[in-house]
Nucleic acid binder design. Structure first.
Length: 498
RNA sequence: CGGGGUAUGGCCCAGUUGGUAGGGCGUCUGGUUUGGGACCAGAAGAUCGUGAGUUCGAGUCUCGCUACCCCGACCA
């Protein structure tokens, strides 16, 4: 472990490639965010990791409410028949789900604990939700009668289970936490506005809170959510130049309304199928956060999302010094007025060096050191997590400097990630060059594509990269498909992905 | 479901041609330390994944079983 650390200390984050996956897991371990459970593919989110999720929830929840949504909760268990109602939903879905077949345990006759009671078989199996469209829309069908019932703007914070073949902490686990918004509207235009509006909420959140720049765009037809009319997404470039789909928003059209009979009487007394959207982000965002900013020392958190913004390390030898330092710390703490977002590490049995390291691993944006020398000079030492820059600050100035540094760090992390993405994005017009980039260091390759999945498949077969999205911010520009040479109206992004 | 690997204290691992289990980390106790991952002394902690076999004797050899990890297939 230490050998590994020493090794990775030598290499800069931007030059690392093969080790990236291990580095990612190391950061999670260093920051003490999560670990694998004994249950295959499941994750234990530890308190510090969960605190990050809680902060994300807090910000997002506020934004959802500001855009008119309310929270509700729908059941975990879905009747199997519900997953057969919407044809393309059924077809497109992976069938890897957790299925409840029985409802009772009995004592095992051989005395070895409990066993499933074979007599307690369910008439209809229940599926642990892999996503909640079906169970929610069945409910909506009873809620919607008139145009006056619309729109329905509801969000749910929940867990879902997908029996993934292969899992990675935060990025893909069997069970994960997320929010899923499910809305119902009178018209196609309203639903379209909603889907795009919520994508914009995600973009704003990713960039201004997570400092994680994203590309907004539309998924190609063959990569849509099963049953959706359009799937929009935000894509973020990680430090290994692979892309992470960080959130999605679907315009579902009337597909689910038709399958679940969500019908309303409009102003002209005519029956209409409703228009719907669904949108979600998950604990995967934590994975994105880690892979966007962290370095070889551990996690780096943008101040806006950090559970602890400032950590204060007292330094002393004697009891008198301790008392003196402590007194000053309490003054500073009151002055900074950061509530629970400030932590003072009073642990007596650990050296300052150990504490510096530990809080760096956890990605706390600012560290304040106070020892007798500082008290004598009426100053403190302030260290920034992202740059490592150390400065001496007069106690009287600390509050304003902390405020400025937190703002600056937030901006600087975003700018750094934006620069990285810019440096690794390429406009490419010939196939060989595209393959060369994707087979090499990787990155976002903007190329023309005719719309035929076969052309994408060819690239995928060769370099395991695919179309991430049809970006919104891309001028219409006629060209020729980089694979087959047929006509194309605009560029798409090819990249490797998580 | 294919291909490869692993299973030894809470964690990481060593254990030679078979001879009755060892180190590091962590934990606990006491002391000295504390401005970049402290040190010393002592202590606790293992039916060596599981079942059978070979043997005077198995962590070690043979066979079966199980679990986990890595590479693919999956990934709304």
């Amino acid at each position: 472990m230490n050998e590994q650390n020493n090794k990775t200390k030598q290499t800069g984050i931007t030059t690392r490639k093969a080790d990236f996956s291990q580095w990612y897991l190391d950061v999670i371990e260093k920051a003490d965010l999560a670990e694998h459970s004994v249950v295959k593919g499941c994750m234990v989110i530890k308190p510090y990791g969960y605190a990050i999720w809680e902060n994300m929830q807090k910000v997002l929840d506020k934004k959802f409410k500001e855009t008119g949504h309310k929270n509700a909760y729908f059941p975990l268990l879905i009747p199997k028949s519900f997953l057969s109602k919407e044809a393309s939903h059924v077809k497109g879905f992976a069938k890897e789900c957790a299925i409840v077949t029985h409802y009772r345990l009995i004592d095992n006759p051989d005395g070895s604990g409990v066993m499933v009671d074979p007599k307690a078989k369910l008439e209809e199996e229940l599926i642990i939700r892999p996503t909640s469209e079906t169970i929610i829309y069945d409910t909506y069908s009873r809620w919607v009668q008139s145009y006056r019932d619309l729109p329905i703007l509801i969000n749910q914070w929940a867990n879902v289970v997908r029996w993934e073949m292969r899992t990675r902490l935060f990025l893909r686990t069997t069970e994960f936490l997320w929010q899923e918004g499910h809305t119902v509207h009178e018209t196609e235009a309203e639903a379209e506005i909603e889907a795009r509006k919520m994508l914009e909420v995600y973009r704003d959140f990713s960039e201004n809170y997570l400092a994680m720049p994203v590309i907004t765009g539309r998924k190609p037809e063959h990569d849509k959510f099963p049953g959706a009319l359009h799937t929009y997404c935000i894509e973020a470039m990680m430090q290994d130049r692979k892309s992470l789909q960080a959130g999605t928003s679907h315009h579902l059209g009337q597909n689910f309304a038709k399958a679940f009979n969500i019908v309303f009487t409009d102003k002209n007394s005519e029956k209409q199928f409703a228009w719907q959207t669904s949108w979600g982000v998950s604990t995967r965002l934590i994975g994105g956060l880690i892979m966007t900013h962290s370095d070889d020392k551990g996690l780096v958190l943008p101040p806006e999302i950090a559970p602890i913004k400032v950590v204060i390390i007292p330094i002393y030898k004697t009891d008198e010094e301790k008392e003196l330092v402590q007194k000053n710390i309490e003054n500073i703490k009151a002055d900074l007025d950061l509530g629970l977002e400030i932590e003072v590490d009073y642990r007596d049995n650990l050296s300052p060096g150990f504490k510096f390291n530990e809080w760096e691993k956890k990605g706390v944006p600012l560290r304040v050191e106070i020892g007798p020398k500082d008290v004598a000079n009426n100053q403190v030492v302030l260290v920034r997590r992202d740059s490592g820059v150390k400065q001496f600050i007069l106690m009287a100035d600390l509050k304003s400097v902390v405020k400025t540094e937190l703002l600056d760090m937030q901006k600087s992390l975003l700018a750094k990630a934006q620069d990285f993405r810019k440096d690794n994005s390429f406009v490419v017009d010939n196939y060989e060059e595209l393959i060369k980039i994707l087979a090499g260091d990787g990155g976002y390759v903007y190329s023309h594509w005719c719309g035929d999945p076969a052309c994408e498949d060819k690239i995928n077969a060769e370099v395991k990269a695919a179309i991430r999205c049809l970006p919104f911010e891309q001028k219409d520009e006629a060209g020729e498909c980089v694979v087959c040479g047929k006509k194309s109206e605009r560029r798409v992004i090819f990249a490797k992905a998580y």
